[in-house]
Design a protein around this nucleic acid. Structure first.
Length: 355
DNA sequence: TCTGGGGTCCTCGTGCGG
DNA sequence: TCTGCCGCACGAGGACCC
């Protein structure tokens, strides 16, 4: 059966929550960001975006672009609360929902009687009950739905068939497709491929030669807007981590171990809260020259005990013994036991993101 | 321009047991 | 007993996403 998928995306979500809590900031360039010297922008209101401010940009640069920007520290508890309300409304309309992060979800509309009308009602309901604005894309698979929801933001409502998506975005850069980032786009550029139309017309063998047997064919299929329509309601976490970037790089190993212990404590608290134990303990170290090193060790029994986690993490750090100043330190737990095997059936026509 | 935090998934290399 | 092959698990790095 042909499926119909929607992608629902809340517009400038964190910034909108902040504007709702502080209406006096409406119409002003609001930037949600930490305040440290190495902070980056979490999200920016549309007023701030007019100045070129965008997500993941160093806050120092955002302030140069828009000196009058109003910095607001992120409050994830508040965002989670609003997100929960929105997702409850979504689940009131559609049974099969795949939530991604706090501000977006895929919805399987296949069983709905009049799906477009239902989605318009849902958007209105979300706005009336939470004050959030949403953009919606609808298509035969998740890729078309996602790109369609991005196409007319904010408050967009865009319905496309696969063929319409191919025509509409033929001249768009490959990076329009989620999963094609800066590195892949650059590599494609070197092959003379700068549009989705060109990518779609490139033989699999050429792409496989440059990108490998999996990613190559995936790239061409994505450029043709062929993608999965499998909405997965439950996502099982495969790892949990805590990391921190220091305001000032740390050189002394003793000081690093103090920071490592704090991170291990936070991680173990989180693991206990989620009822998780794992076998693979890893550290992540980013040096002042931005090189990032990870070291991992698998222990015999799954655990979330602080003495084990910190003990192994400290051993890994001592063995690595960074020779340059450290700007970031992290601890990660993976290898959670008892995860059910994914059933391979019914996935033949579907394409999972390789990245 | 000077780059967060928390994740997922892929690729490749290596060691090991059958 | 040695060697090669294969599959698997693990470890490391990297690209990407929100």
């Amino acid at each position: 059966m042909a499926r119909l998928i929607a992608h629902l995306d809340l517009d400038a979500f964190y910034a909108t929550v902040e504007l709702q809590r502080r209406p006096e900031l409406r119409g002003l360039p609001v930037v949600v960001s930490g305040s440290g010297p190495r902070a980056v922008v979490t999200t920016a209101s549309y007023e701030a975006r007019k100045f070129g401010v965008g997500s993941a940009m160093p806050t120092s640069r955002a302030l140069r672009l828009c000196p009058q920007a109003i910095l607001v520290p992120p409050d994830f508890d508040a965002y989670r609360a609003v997100s929960a309300k929105v997702m409850a409304l979504v689940r009131g309309t559609v049974d099969l929902v795949e939530v991604l992060g706090l501000d977006e979800a895929y919805l399987d509309l296949s069983g709905l009687h009049s799906p477009k009308a239902a989605m318009r009602r849902l958007v209105t309901e979300i706005n009336q009950q939470t004050g959030m604005n949403a953009s919606v894309g609808i298509g035969p698979n998740k890729l078309v739905a996602k790109v369609a929801s991005d196409a007319e933001k904010p408050r967009g409502f865009c319905v496309l068939t696969r063929e319409q998506a191919c025509r509409r975005f033929a001249g768009a850069p490959p990076s329009l497709v989620p999963g094609i980032g800066a590195k892949t786009a650059e590599k494609l550029g070197k092959l003379g491929i700068s549009t989705l139309q060109q990518l779609a017309a490139t033989p699999d063998e050429v792409l496989a030669g440059a990108f490998g047997g999996r990613q190559g064919p995936w790239l061409r299929a994505a450029a043709r807007f062929e993608g999965s329509s499998h909405v997965e309601p439950v996502r099982i976490a495969v790892s949990e981590s805590r990391e921190t970037t220091f305001d000032v790089d740390i050189t002394a190993h003793a000081e690093l171990e103090v920071e490592l212990q704090k991170l291990a404590e936070k991680l173990c608290e989180g693991l206990a809260k989620h009822g998780r134990t794992g076998r693979t303990i890893a550290i992540k170290v980013r040096l002042d020259d931005w090189t990032t090193v990870t070291r991992a060790r698998t222990v015999g029994e799954a655990t979330n005990a602080l003495d084990v986690v910190f003990g192994v993490a400290r051993e890994l750090l001592r063995e690595y013994a960074p020779e340059r100043p450290v700007r970031l330190l992290g601890v990660r737990m993976a290898g959670f036991p008892g995860e059910p095997e994914e059933e391979p059936e019914e996935r033949g026509d579907q394409l999972a993101l390789p990245l």
